[in-house]
Structure formats: structure tokens, C-alpha cells
């Protein structure tokens, strides 16, 4: 059973936001109106933002700037604060370590969004809308079972959503292997952001396999995790710049 993890090399990242856009189209994340976005209601499962986060702290003047960029998917923590507080198990960690989100069961209490220190969980304040013909080109993939709705399926109003490491892609790769009557190999599946990244700054794979790229990079002296002090043990590792 693989344990999925990601490594993001900040030295290679050019902050092009390609991962964010790829994620948006892969996962049918709706764009909100500019006013809503200003109010902080835009949904970006994979966010790209400058550090320091508080603009008031950024006092540097060009050319002496130290601003950095961080790309942030869900950390898929080993010890996720979000799943511990969910009253209905609408969000849970599966055996492969992916923190999943069931839109069909979520009651919208938003305790998980409040509990997540990384802010990776988003709420559907209004029903999602797409402009013009965009609504005709949604990703049809979805994970569906009685009482279960996951993946890129269009979310109803009033539920929480988040990055799933493109769980539908994993499912597809598994089904393909099954159809071809062979064993599934962990390198057959990557999320859309990893596939898109033009700088090849993102690596994805099985952390339990010591020969995998992510496991090797995790041992790098440049490796660090965000907000280590929160005790969440993220499975997304960053490689420090420089």
C-alpha cells in the first residue's frame, strides 16, 4: 500500500501559478466574482502566495527584496487537525494517507476550515457558477457511491472542499491497470499540478518506497515542512531555496 507524498522544490519554482490553474480546471473549482474574491472567498485548492504573508510586513524596496513565493496544496498531514474535528466523518484519511473530502455528507459546520492551520480548506459560500461556455467543459470525472461524492464532482452550495491529490486520477490509473490485468505501479499516477509544472519543481510518489524520488528528496538537507510546530506531520515537503 503506497503512502502518497509530494516534494516541492522552491529553488526550481518560478511562481508561474501553472499548478493553481491546472488544479482549477482539473478539479472544476469555480471562479468567483471580483467582489467576492476581494472579500476572500475565492477557491484555490492549490494556492500560490508571497511570503511574508502580511503585506504590511514587506518593507523591502527594490532591488533589496526578499519576497519569496510559496505554492501550497493540501499538506495531507499524517496527523490532520481537520479530520479530528469533523463531526460526521465527511473528511477522513484513507489507508494511502490521502485526506479525502466527501461532499455528500458534509454539513457545512466549518470546524475543519477553522482547525486547519494551513488554510487549505475552502467553503462554498454560494452555489458554484461558470461563465459562458466554461460550464460545458467541466471535467466529467467524479468519485461517486451511495452517500459519497468526491473528486472533481461539482460541489453543492454550503459544503467544504479541498485538494485531494487528484484522487480521481489514482482511481483511473488503478482501473486501467485492472483492465489491462496487471499490477498497479505507484509511478502511474501523479496529480494535475505535478504534471503541469513547467519547471518540474514538483515531485510526487510513494513515501514508503525508499527508492522513490520523494523519499530520496525527503532526506535532503534542504527539506523542510511548513508549520512544523503545529504537529501535523505534513506529507508535502518543501526544498529550501539556495
Amino acid at each position: 500500500m503506497p503512502r502518497w507524498g509530494m516534494v516541492i522544490d522552491l529553488d526550481k519554482c518560478v511562481a508561474c501559478q501553472g499548478c493553481s490553474i491546472a488544479c482549477r480546471f482539473e478539479n472544476n473549482t469555480p471562479a468567483v466574482s471580483p467582489e467576492e474574491a476581494l472579500q476572500g472567498r475565492s477557491i484555490r485548492w492549490n494556492d500560490v502566495f508571497p511570503l511574508p504573508i502580511d503585506p504590511a510586513e514587506d518593507k523591502d524596496v527594490y532591488p533589496n527584496v526578499t519576497t519569496r513565493y510559496l505554492t501550497r496544496p493540501c499538506m495531507h498531514c499524517e496527523n490532520p487537525p481537520c479530520i479530528k474535528v469533523c463531526p460526521v466523518q465527511a473528511t477522513y484519511k484513507d489507508e494511502e494517507g490521502i485526506v479525502r473530502m466527501n461532499y455528500a455528507r458534509c454539513i457545512g459546520c466549518r470546524l475543519c476550515t477553522v482547525a486547519c492551520p494551513y488554510g487549505v480548506r475552502y467553503f462554498n459560500w454560494y452555489a458554484p457558477e461558470w461563465e459562458g461556455s466554461l460550464s460545458e467543459h467541466l471535467n466529467p470525472d467524479r468519485i461517486e457511491a451511495p452517500g459519497d461524492l468526491e473528486g472533481p464532482a461539482v460541489r453543492p452550495r454550503g459544503v467544504v472542499e479541498k485538494c485531494t491529490f487528484c484522487i480521481h486520477r489514482l482511481q483511473k490509473a488503478r482501473l486501467q491497470a485492472e483492465a489491462e490485468q496487471r499490477d498497479f505501479r505507484p509511478d502511474e499516477y501523479v496529480p494535475a499540478c505535478v504534471e503541469t509544472c513547467p519547471a518540474k519543481a514538483r515531485y510526487f510518489g510513494d513515501l514508503d518506497n525508499p527508492d522513490s524520488t520523494v523519499a530520496q528528496l525527503n532526506k535532503s538537507s534542504r527539506a523542510f515542512v511548513e508549520l512544523e510546530e503545529a504537529g501535523t506531520h505534513p506529507k508535502v515537503t518543501y526544498l529550501r531555496e539556495g
Binding site: 479530528k84 460526521v88 467553503f123
Partner: peptide, 18 residues
């Protein structure tokens, strides 16, 4: 809560850790 229509989920799927 965002989905008052699903309030009974708290009883049907209630999880004691929360």
C-alpha cells in the same frame, strides 16, 4: 451551518472524536 438539511447527519454519522 451550511447545510441545515443535513443536520441529521450528526446523528446518523456522528463521530465521537469531534
Amino acid at each position: 451551518i451550511g447545510r441545515p438539511d443535513r443536520l441529521l447527519n450528526v446523528v446518523q454519522y456522528g463521530r465521537l472524536q469531534s
